[in-house]
Design a protein around this nucleic acid. Structure first.
Lengths: 203, 203
DNA sequence: CGGTGACTTAATCAAGCGTCCAACTGTGTG
DNA sequence: CACACAGTTGGACGCTTGATTAAGTCACCG
């Protein structure tokens, strides 16, 4: 007989299972039955741990948002602005590359959230973007950087990361994605050189 | 009694209606009832024009793929490589900006296609990318451009366009998107300057 | 005026959904 | 050891909603 598991641990299992199922079947295809099966738990177990499916999904949201927060805050606070930007982009892309399911599930969640025109869904995207701005602002710089510049850099990082994710989760080609990571970073770098007025880096 | 319409015209109505409904409710939410309602037609009418829902969706795919083809082929064939790339990126982004529904529906279709791991879905993305490559190849250039370089430029255009689309369809902020178009073009431009400028033929 | 193509009504059939209950089992505690 | 309770289960409820179609009605063209 299988060991008994605490509710807290079960909840965590359900969240991870939900990410997998959402990635594989989409939001609408993420049924309680499939999630329970993926979590190797009984269907009734899900309602023992969560009052409703919606409650579980709220936790899934928090999980995804938290992962972004961790990745973004992981950047070295002593680097200069340009290097911080590079690290942020690379960090997010590596996070995507690490788990295709996470990438796909995030995409599904964001597009689902947009459909419901609820704030909560956009919140994931919005919070992540705001955290990126905050980290960029805190990067030491020789001259003061205008807020508008920060916004633009954050936008470019997000754009490159999203575009990367799109390609990676569409083709699922890991080796191609690895090369594309380098391209994305070089693109950011070229633009920052022009935008911030430093000397461009020779390849 | 309403005017009578040819089957061909009806089909076109259904395709457009399907795009709207997919954008608003997602693929799984795009039911025959909703599509028929959006097309201001009877539910049975749909099955009078199409044998099945799947047949309609096949046409929707062809419609989306065709729109990409048109936009991409619309670029001026006399521009040099760098300008061609700029035009391609701008063209795709303008196409997105023109119709939020088209943008959203495309996203939905691509992520749905990935889930079904059928080739047909990826085909939309793939065909568009290949057409971009073809146009880039046909751009007149002083020195011969390596195939790898073409691939990379096409990838960067796709990445910037996808990232732009992601942000635009998430926030739906048209004025922000217009500014972001310029940023995206400037990013491409900076990178191209480095990428093409620093690879002389015979050093 | 008939027939063909456009159109509608209403029903069929079935699948699958979230949720819940009542019973059962293991485990730690007194 | 016995008891209480957290963890676990199979099964069923009721309900929504899906795609599809049979059969009938209407309008237009020759």
């Amino acid at each position: 007989m299988a060991r008994r598991i605490s509710v807290a641990q079960r909840r965590s299992d359900f969240i991870n299972a939900a990410v997998e199922v959402i990635a594989a079947y989409g939001i609408d295809g993420a049924t309680t039955r499939r999630i329970a099966e993926q979590a190797q738990a009984n269907l009734a177990m899900l309602h023992y741990c969560y009052d409703s499916k919606e409650d579980l999904f709220a936790d899934v949201y928090e999980f995804v948002a938290g992962k972004y927060r961790d990745v973004v805050k992981d950047s070295d606070p002593h680097s200069d602005l340009r290097d911080t930007a590079r690290q942020l982009l690379r960090g997010v892309m590596e996070c995507y590359l690490e788990s295709a399911s996470f990438t796909a599930a995030t995409m599904e969640l964001i597009s689902w959230a947009r459909r419901q025109h609820g704030d909560r869904g956009i919140a994931v995207y919005d919070q992540a973007l705001e955290t990126v701005r905050a980290v960029l602002r805190s990067a030491p710089s020789d001259h003061p950087v205008e807020p508008e510049t920060i916004d633009q850099i954050a936008y470019v990082i997000a754009t490159l990361a999203d575009g990367f994710a799109m390609n990676w989760f569409t083709y699922g080609d890991r080796s191609a994605a690895t090369e594309q990571m380098d391209i994305a970073v070089s693109v950011l770098d070229s633009w920052l050189a022009v935008r911030l007025g430093s000397t461009p880096v020779a390849p």
